[in-house]
Computed example of a mutant assay.
Amino acid sequence: MRTPHVVVVMGVAGTGKTTIGPLLAARLGVPYAEGDDFHPQANIDKMTAGVPLDDDDRWPWLDAIGAWAHGRAGLGGVVSSSALKRSYRDRLRAEAPGIVFVHLTGDRKLIEDRMTHRQGHFMPTALLDSQFATLQPLQADERGVAVDVSGSPEEITARAVAALDDLDSPTRSDRAEPSPR
């Protein structure tokens, strides 16, 4: 990427935001912030109990992520956030207008399998259906790219870097299309 953007790595639980985010940050030479660390304990307790968050739960979390992104404006950074709804991304953009989204996408079965095998995370597989039901993919007027999560973390990260570079290309439209599967 030509300029140091703040990149939000987004997607449903299990797409690899926590894995890809730090790898992407390292490739871009910017700091990484784990979006889950911005959740208040009440949100973590709720999700651990298998209860989906509602918008009232999410607003303070999104505001905290947005404040971090705002503080990184012009410096660059990568932060993870599910950012499932357009209104959530709008809220983040209100705090940090220059942010760019990397939407990690993939087959539901692959994502569920990855969630089943990960350890030490509070988000149960039972909430995956609610995540997909809530998901509103990036729209044409939102600055970002969609990146398929099949393959190794290094392959996914390489696709994300290439898509971001392509997004910054002067011959490119405002939004890159999803990577082929």
Rank of each mutant, 00 (worst) to 15 (best):
D174W: 11
T105P: 10
T157I: 00
V79G: 06
P4G: 09
A160P: 11
V7M: 12
R118E: 05
S80H: 02
F101A: 07
R72M: 14
A162W: 10
R27S: 15
V147I: 13
A158S: 15
V8I: 14
T15Y: 00
V9S: 11
A49P: 10
A83K: 11
S152P: 13
S81I: 04
D37Q: 14
L135P: 07
P22I: 08
A146H: 10
L23E: 14
T134G: 02
E155V: 14
A42P: 03
P178G: 14
G151N: 11
M123Y: 05
T48C: 06
A160R: 06
D148E: 15
L62M: 06
N43L: 10
S82E: 02
V6W: 04
A162L: 14
A13C: 15
K109Y: 11
D45T: 08
R114M: 02
D56K: 06
R114Q: 03
A73K: 02
Y88T: 00
E34T: 08
G50T: 06
G144Y: 04
R181W: 08
E154Y: 12
V79M: 06
W61S: 01
Y32H: 15
V12N: 01
L167V: 11
M1E: 13
G11T: 12
L23C: 13
R91L: 12
D129Y: 00
F122M: 07
G98L: 08
V149D: 04
A73G: 10
G29W: 02
S87H: 11
G77P: 05
